[in-house]
């Protein structure tokens, strides 16, 4: 029986982790913690659902979801983010909240909160491991998460753009003085993050429910996973997401805490944040 809980936890954790990775990649190179990440994914997932309802073939729905999310992410990155590029990180984060509200309002206008189901071809696939059935979607989420995390890590280390992204992450002004094409590199970051947002939105829409509100605020546990990685480390974010998912799922088995199990991401993240800050005494503006 434990297997069921482990699998469910890993699938959920993988979504958290993948969202977290998307957040971290962007934050590292642009300094923007994108609170609109969930909303961007939501828009993609809702479009996919709509297209499915209109009897379009499934690949069209997939492409539309990923494309819509990427475009939204790029639009913000190119059109709005530059106005705020020299502000404090918290202001940049709060600004993305404005973008999130705009997307959420639009999505809620077209798709009021209602019970829906999103079907993906992977739902019909599946295999049994140790008496536990694993659907194709769950397997896909897990594999995609692992592949993406390591893929991006390699990309950052071994390609020119990746290295430039790393440079931006460390010192933005210095990099631009040294001739790093800041805008172009940042655009890559918004692009990668947008694709990941679209994919996680689609997966979450399938595994939980395709509703704009639910998908938009999925960003909160995803931020928790990103916090575990201190908004820097991809492997830590991956581990954080997976651990949070498994802890949350396994807590189901412990009777008194079962109803409160979805608090897991926040407890883990809060404890970690406090631990990381334990030696600081004073704070100065501009530093986080």
């Amino acid at each position: 029986m434990y297997g069921v809980f482990l699998v469910a936890g890993l699938a959920l954790g993988a979504i958290y982790a993948l969202s977290g990775v998307g957040l971290v990649v962007l934050y590292r190179s642009t300094g923007v913690l994108n609170i609109a990440y969930g909303a961007i994914g939501a828009m993609g997932a809702m479009l996919a659902w709509q297209l499915e309802q209109m009897q379009y073939p499934e690949p069209v729905a997939w492409v539309a979801a990923l494309l819509a999310a990427t475009l939204l992410s790029l639009a913000y990155g190119r059109l709005v983010a530059p106005y705020l590029s020299y502000r404090e990180p918290v202001v940049k984060a709060v600004a993305t909240l404005g973008f999130a509200l705009m997307i959420l309002g639009t999505a809620n206008y077209f798709w009021v909160e209602a019970p829906r189901r999103l079907y993906l071809f992977t739902d019909a696939m599946g295999f049994e491991v140790l008496d536990v059935r694993i659907t194709g979607t769950r397997a896909l989420v897990l594999i995609a998460t692992l592949a993406t995390t390591f893929g991006i890590a390699i990309f950052l280390k071994h390609t020119r753009i990746g290295l430039l992204m790393q440079a931006l992450a460390n010192k933005r002004e210095l990099s631009s003085v040294l001739g790093v094409p800041v805008i172009r590199i940042e655009t890559y970051a918004w692009l990668i993050s947008g694709v990941l947002a679209g994919f996680t939105g689609l997966m979450f829409g399938d595994l939980v429910r395709p509703n704009p509100g639910a998908l938009t605020f999925l960003v909160i546990p995803a931020i928790a996973a990103a916090i575990v990685g201190r908004l820097e480390s991809l492997p830590m974010t991956l581990a954080g997401g997976l651990i949070i998912g498994v802890v949350e799922s396994m807590s189901t088995l412990i009777k008194p805490i079962a109803p409160y199990r979805s608090i897991a991401p926040f407890v883990v993240a809060a404890i970690l944040l406090l631990w990381l800050q334990r030696n600081r005494k004073l704070t100065f503006s501009g530093h986080d």
């Binding site: 913690l33 931020i223 979805s262 991401p265 503006s285 986080d288």
Partner: peptide, 22 residues
């Protein structure tokens, strides 16, 4: 007392999300 800016905002967000579940 030890944090400001983004990380503080995130701590309060974690608090709000935790309260919602509680």
């Amino acid at each position: 007392l030890r944090m400001r800016g983004l990380f503080l905002a995130l701590i309060t967000l974690m608090g709000a999300a935790g309260f919602q579940i509680l």
